[in-house]
Design a protein around this nucleic acid. Structure first.
Length: 930
RNA sequence: GGGCGAUUAGCUCAGUUGGUUAGAGCAUCGUGUUGAUAACGCGAGGGUCACUGGUUCGAGUCCAGUAUCGCCCA
């Protein structure tokens, strides 16, 4: 037998390498088989409840890395809450309806040459959505997300749809729903009005044109020759709908004279105007305040009507001429000005974006489309040629600016007035009520309250109608005179039918069939009715989730304790939810809202879609779920979250440290039975008490971090605890005693007792984040096998008070260790450089100080422990009469023990093993080996 | 263009009510060990705290502006 074989070296089957990609799936299967989620719920059935309400991801693709981040954060929080004894059910959801799916499905069907009825199209959309629910569910599960998948909610489920309709009925009942002609964003390829959320801004090159409107007669005094007011626009195609020219009441406008003609533009932009239109030799004349121009009646440049000068505050001097082309049917500001001046909300475009023949539009424009394809806009070209022909066009330039685009077709959208359904947000002081409720919610980060407040304060009435099929129909009927029947009782009755059969019935049945058995208001009774073709804005769908899920699933409760989504949802889901909550239930549906930022690349810039780094699965397949989860925890998610391969490698390093530490602990607990082998708290050696004190502090700090959902702080704490407290200090010191002491010796049992307690705390603390690894380590701990019946996720969260130690002893050792870190290592390193020693055990340390020195007193108190704490072979303390503490290091004296590698004054015989130190001889004796 | 936020070593984070030479961990480099070994130890280098100006005896910390980045809006 070799000496090495007489040592108690670490022994565990817990593998050093994680091999997560390969190993994690079998643990998932194990969890599924044992019903881990259900077990956790059962265990906490009587605990206080904590309801996190899941924001439903849209079901039109693979799980995006941002969605993965979101779900991981939720899962980590819920696992933490569960370990703390909360009944924390998790019902995930899916957002199914909406334009992106309908668009994609329509496109695919068109390519196949199939033309489906709305009902058939909806079926295809439902299949599409269902297929991605399957896919995404699998991807979420792969991340380790634990949930009540059997109860998951879907916005396309009949009962959910019925809730949407009932919520809408509540809106109608309160008189908030109205119909109005209003300019809305219109996507020509999609033939639909778009919500703000469906519009994205991209840089766009538009023609910018200067157009002169003649002011005939003697409207303006002291002007000889022709007089013009000059407008500037980047949307020439809206000129046929021009009904006015807006100027700012308080700005000065100046007469620009050139070649006998006079042009009126705002003073600040006169130079710009002269240069842009190349009016060489132009001179400036009199100035006039904008409000004085209000009475002017310029002529439309190519249609026989006047375009009066109106006043508007939003006119700026940033670009153009300060005289704003106004088309009430094509812009929101123009619309408001139009209302103020009693102008028609005029919009001569059909659904396809082509000019209609209404007797006013010039014949050469009729049928021309305003849709821009490949940078060319036929309507713009046609309008420009008319303007040129009429001599009204003064200049054309290219203008790059940010312009709204359809989020799906990516084409520029147009503003177009048409009939839509709206929800009034100001009636019954609804907006004020929502703002009041916002104050009752705790927003994290705190700045979130400003964002949602701003969004609620400034949003216009909610346009809720969409001209689509894949959604919940707006339950409105029309009589022959186009009078709408929109009645809360009728809608509620319809909702009952929908709860049974889904909204498909709206598309499959006639109005008469739909209304069969439903009592109509007197004015519609007996009339022939037709059903409306619009669907509801999908934000209503998801905005009703708290009503459809929290109020209807008996395991959940309303309002939610927590909503946790990306910061973009201040304007999206958080807002739609609080509106439906306040309108239908009188309060906000959540108590706390936490937001996370967006994922950016390593430079901190928006991640580009082409990189292919967007898929959650790609990262999981390369690094494993625990690394992804650790990556999520590693950063402060309240700001931007950086994503890069490099980053994952760094996180992997930290992971390896944690894993190795667990392996060390498991290895050194081999053969240790806490019930029979643990020492009493009073018998714990000083270093073990120190380690337990450190653990208590660690647990306390991590708990605080977790309570604040500050995973990055927990991550830093874990990294530090594992890397410094345990690995560098505690575990390093322990090696000698764990390896060479006889198993029954108190010191060794003391350390194993401490390691046992620390391991069980550490593995719990990492469990919410490193779910797989913690459970793996736990399995080996409780069963010695990779998979066990028990799970770390059924264990309670540790408390600082779980760890016994004497505060004075622990503090003393802390001081000794600080002394080692600051003073002892340096001279040892110097010896190493000088090649006097290699390992620290080859060294001895001598410390000299005055008798009164507190440090010396402290060291004396623990003199016997010092070699172990300093990890050297010998430490000698000596006194002197005055001066600072002196520390010298040299090669150790005596001989090297071949068993413990420590240098001792003399070796003693140990049978067949030759000579060893007296302590090692005793150990061998205790082991009955000699 | 507007609103909100961020900006501390290569990376991820700490920096308490403004107060001595700005701290960790990881990474890097050097080195030791070979009984945690695709591991572990020790040491070193690395920051004009985004920039500019202000308040103050004193500012990473307070104020203003600028820049860059992100989200939202136009």
């Amino acid at each position: 037998m070799e000496l090495k074989d007489t040592l108690n070296l670490p022994d565990t089957k817990f593998p050093m390498r994680g091999n997560l990609v390969k190993r994690e799936p079998s643990r998932l299967e194990h969890w599924r088989k044992m019903g881990l989620y259900e077990k956790i719920q059962e265990q906490n059935a009587q605990g206080p409840s904590f309801v996190l309400h899941d924001g439903p991801p849209f079901t039109n693709g693979d799980v995006h890395i941002g969605t993965a981040l979101n779900k991981i954060l939720k899962d980590s929080i819920l696992r933490y809450k569960s370990m703390q004894g909360f009944r924390a059910p998790y019902v995930p959801g899916w957002d199914c309806h909406g334009l992106p799916i309908e668009f994609k499905v329509t496109k695919e069907l068109r390519e196949k040459g199939e033309d489906l009825s709305p009902a058939q199209l909806r079926e295809a959309c439902a299949d599409f959505s269902a297929s991605f629910i399957e896919k995404q569910r699998g991807q979420f599960q792969r991340l380790g997300v634990l949930a009540d998948w059997a109860e998951e909610y879907k916005t396309m489920k009949p009962t959910y749809e019925a809730t949407i309709l009932r919520t809408f009925a509540s809106f109608v009942e309160q008189g908030l729903v109205y119909r109005s002609k209003k300019p809305v964003y219109w996507s020509i390829p999609c033939e639909t009005a778009l919500a703000e959320a469906e519009v994205e801004y991209h840089d766009h090159i538009s023609p910018s044109i200067w157009v002169r409107f003649e002011i005939p007669g003697h409207q303006f005094l002291h002007i000889d020759g022709p007089l013009y007011i000059v407008i500037w626009t980047t949307t020439p195609w809206t000129l046929p709908a021009n009904l006015a020219v807006a100027v700012h009441p308080d700005l000065e406008y100046v007469e620009v004279k050139h070649n006998g003609a006079t042009y009126i533009v705002v003073d600040q932009l006169a130079e710009n105007f002269i240069q842009s239109c190349e009016l060489e030799g132009a001179t400036l004349g009199e100035k006039h305040l904008g409000r004085k121009l209000e009475s002017l009646q310029p002529k439309h440049p190519f249609i026989d009507r006047n375009s009066p000068v109106v006043l508007a505050d939003y006119v700026t001097t940033e670009s153009g001429t300060g005289c704003v082309h106004t088309a009430p049917g094509h812009g929101l500001e123009d619309y408001l000005t139009g209302l103020k001046y009693g102008l028609e909300i005029y919009c001569p475009l059909d659904d396809n974006g082509c000019y209609v023949d209404d007797g006013q539009v010039p014949a050469e424009l009729v049928g021309v489309t305003v849709l821009e394809t490949k940078g060319k806009c036929p309507a713009n070209s046609a309008v420009l040629s008319i303007l040129t022909e009429k001599g009204a066009l003064m200049a054309v330039k290219k203008h790059e600016h940010s312009y709204p685009h359809c989020w799906r077709s990516k084409t520029p959208v147009v503003f177009r007035a048409m009939d839509q359904w709206f929800v009034s947000l100001d009636a019954h002081h609804m907006r004020e009520k929502v703002l009041e409720q916002i104050e009752q919610v705790k927003w994290t980060p705190e700045a979130g309250i400003k964002r949602i407040r701003g969004a609620v304060e400034t949003r216009p009435d909610w346009c809720i109608s969409r001209q689509r099929s894949w959604g919940v129909p707006i339950p409105v009927f029309y009589d022959d005179d186009k009078n709408p029947l929109i009645d809360a009782d009728v809608i509620k009755a319809l909702a009952d039918k929908v709860a049974e059969n889904g909204t498909n019935i709206w598309f499959e049945q006639s109005a008469a069939e739909l209304l069969d058995g439903i009592e109509l208001p007197a004015e519609f009774a007996g009339k022939t009715l037709t059903k409306g073709g619009d669907t509801l804005d999908v934000w209503i769908d998801s905005g009703c989730s708290h009503r459809a899920v929290l109020q209807q699933n008996e395991k959940l409760s309303w309002p939610a304790d927590l909503y946790l989504e990306g910061s973009d949802q201040h304007r999206g889901w958080f807002q739609s939810s609080i509106w439906t909550g306040v309108i239908a239930d009188g309060a906000a549906p959540y108590k706390n809202v936490v937001t996370h930022g967006f994922i950016v690349d390593e430079k901190g810039e928006k991640i580009s879609k082409s990189k292919g780094a967007m898929s959650s699965d790609g990262w999981v397949k390369k690094f494993g779920a625990d690394i992804m989860r650790l990556w999520v925890a590693s950063q402060d998610y309240r700001g931007d979250i950086r994503l890069s391969e490099n980053h994952f490698k760094l996180v992997s390093n930290v992971y390896r440290g944690v894993r190795n530490t667990l392996m060390y602990q498991l290895g050194n607990l081999a053969g240790f039975d806490y019930e029979t082998d643990a020492v009493k708290p009073a018998d714990l050696t000083p270093i073990d008490q120190w380690a337990l004190m450190q653990t208590a502090g660690f647990v306390e700090r991590v708990t605080t971090a977790m309570d604040n959902y500050e995973f990055h702080r927990a991550y830093q704490e874990i990294d530090r605890f594992v890397g410094v407290t345990l690995s560098r200090v505690y575990h390093a010191i322990l090696k000698d005693r764990l390896y060479t002491f006889a198993p029954e010796w108190t010191e060794r049992a003391s350390s194993q007792t401490a390691i046992y307690l620390i391991f069980r705390a550490l593995v719990r603390v990492i469990a919410p984040v490193l779910t797989f690894t913690a459970d793996e380590a736990w399995s080996f701990h409780v069963s010695g096998e990779e998979l066990a019946d028990d799970s770390i996720h059924l264990q309670p969260w540790p408390k600082a008070s779980d760890f016994p130690f004497d505060a004075q002893v622990a503090a003393d050792i802390d001081a000794v260790i600080n002394f080692r870190e600051e003073q002892v290592n340096l001279p040892l390193e110097k010896l190493r450089e000088e090649k006097v020693i290699g390992a620290n055990l080859e060294a001895k340390v001598s410390i000299t100080a005055t008798e009164e020195d507190p440090l010396l007193k402290l060291l004396k108190k623990y003199e016997a422990d010092l070699p172990e704490l300093f990890i050297v072979s010998q430490v000698s303390l000596a006194t002197k009469t005055d001066g600072e503490v002196e520390l010298t290091a040299a090669h150790a004296d005596g001989e090297r023990c071949p068993r413990s590698w420590r240098w001792v004054s003399e070796l003693v015989p140990a049978g067949d093993f030759g000579s060893v130190s007296p302590r090692d001889r005793d150990a061998l004796k205790a082991l009955n080996l000699i």
